[in-house]
Design a binder for these strands. Structure first.
Lengths: 319, 319
DNA sequence: GAACCCATGTAACTAGTTACATGATTCA
DNA sequence: TGAATCATGTAACTAGTTACATGGGTTC
């Protein structure tokens, strides 16, 4: 595990607090650790234990005290030993390859849909990575303006996604040329029919002060796939509105876990179709930290907001 | 976790035993699970519990009985639902990028050495992946000759390594153009001096029936880096021999863990320089399964063998 | 006044790996 | 005879994630 070494590396530049380190991990795509509290604070406890860092507690009037960590000589030596040691091989995980290997007998249309969904995921991921890269800690450092190798790193990361998109193009071309034998026994796709939206999501059109909005009540099932977003948009177009009120139940577990990419994909679609969405959640509901961060990022825009009070939500939606 | 789904996908082709599934996972680079017992057998217990597979115990005379698993209708439906669901985004882990970001102030020579080591690792990994791909279960299946998409998958996997090598080329060109300012404060590389070999590894030249071999006694420290292999080769050249006897202590933990790539890199160097190596380990010593597999693969060749009896080892070395 | 930010930490869980255990068969 | 292959399983561990808990300060 080189997390500890990476922390030492960061501290070799300047002393930092756990929280700062955590934010760096969060905002840097090639630092593949999620940077959750447990990991970071545990790592510091270990490093302190081994004498690789020193802790300075800074008490602040009327504020929680900070722990500022400084690297020790032993820590610096450890870090340099790590740099001199063997480099790990690069690894990847691509579920799409597993699917493709196992979905050998799928119908062409289903394969195309799968690849298209993958392409959208990759594009999203690439955009996210680019954005994060350009505002991450390494992009612009105090001493030398920017890290000497940042350009190389950036290129490496983005080329990963670029070559994936290029491969998708090839794969699409390949399956387009496949003979589609209707008589063949195809593995059926399950649960991809369009009419499920109506039955599953329980949408109601409401009106307030002459303005319409679509209300997805908690009684229906949550937004669990990108298809659900498409269905919502279709309903909006049908009823000539661009405002959607989501009951808390509509936010599925997959939705609030950002790494599934679902929230990103759905909200991107909302942006594309100029649709405003307000979610009303119970007061006590806890979301993953990443999701909360995303919420606060969306606060700047006019696409998505989370409320606890339904009236406030509608107010914003129609305002 | 889609491991369970992947197993269902395999069973949708034909009934299999846990051991067979395990071997498929082991031998297929894009199935990123290691395929260790615990994982596989636990997964089967779960699938059985949920009614997605059925178990048929086949008792065999004088042999351990097999459990042959067959997918049920519920399992098949589950698998198809998974296929229809959202695809996971691709992810990668490249320690080299972290190093590069943190090793900003390293000397040019050290950077070059780091990139060269990385290039070798990637080449090794690529070769391994290619070899595994071509003899893996998906490469040649009974029904359709080969999986329709195997070519696409193969291309994707290999292009990952190819584009990494291409990037290394660019990175090398970039650092070659960097001004090497001698006056600058460089972060020193630690422990990369050549003389450590003599002091650390404790090598002795021995002779039997007029044939020389290099004996690395257990008293020294184990082979922990590629540099150690280079040092050993230098000693062989110096003493005009091509046989090395390694005491068990020389095989470090990193060495026996194949995913570190150390064993592969070291043995590749031995192959290149036509050096025979025999390791003598205590009778009870347990190695990771992957390492044991590698040992048996090397049994075909004339480069590396593991013995428990030192005399046998020397016999083979000089034979 | 609700929600977010800074800041620290812990408890409980999931995923995945290593090592141990067993025992017959096959192969050199 | 010793090691490898086939075959099944468990115990203990490491790495990493989610959720919970706390509390002052800031911002809309």
């Amino acid at each position: 595990m080189s997390l500890n070494h990476a922390i030492l590396g960061l501290l070799s530049r300047e002393p930092m607090t756990g929280y700062e380190i955590k934010k760096i991990f969060r905002g840097t795509p090639f630092l593949h650790w999620s940077g959750n509290n447990n990991q970071i604070y545990k790592a510091f406890a270990e490093l302190l234990d081994e004498g690789f860092v020193a802790k300075e507690v800074r008490h602040r009037e009327g504020a929680p005290s900070k722990n500022i960590y400084t690297i020790t000589d032993a820590g610096l030596e450890m870090f340099h030993r790590w740099l001199a040691g063997a480099v790990e091989e690069p690894v990847f995980r691509k579920q799409i390859l597993i699917r493709l290997a196992l979905a050998d007998r799928l119908k062409r249309a289903d394969l195309e849909r799968m690849l298209d969904a993958y392409a959208e995921t990759v594009r999203l991921q690439a955009a996210l990575a680019e954005q994060e890269l350009d505002k991450c800690w390494f992009a612009n450092q105090a001493d030398s303006g920017a890290n000497r190798f940042f350009g190389l790193i950036r290129e490496n990361v983005l080329s990963f996604y670029a070559s994936e998109l290029e491969w998708i193009r090839k794969a699409r071309a390949f399956i387009a040329e496949l003979p589609d034998e209707d008589g063949e026994a195809h593995e059926p796709m399950v649960g991809n029919e369009n009419e499920k939206a109506g039955s599953k999501m329980n949408p109601i059109i409401k009106e307030l002060r002459g303005k319409r909005y679509l209300h997805l009540t908690g009684g229906g099932s949550p937004i669990g796939t990108e298809q659900d977003a498409i269905d919502i948009i279709a309903l909006c177009v049908e009823h000539d509105t661009n405002a959607v009120l989501l009951d808390g139940g509509a936010l599925s577990d997959d939705f609030v876990r950002l790494r599934t990419g679902l929230a990103g994909a759905v909200l991107q679609k909302f942006v594309n179709y100029n649709i405003k969405a307000a979610a009303v959640v119970e007061h006590g509901r806890q979301f993953p930290e990443r999701f909360r961060e995303m919420i606060s990022e969306y606060r700047n825009g006019n696409t998505f907001r989370v409320f606890t009070d339904p009236e406030e939500a509608v107010e914003w939606l129609l305002g």
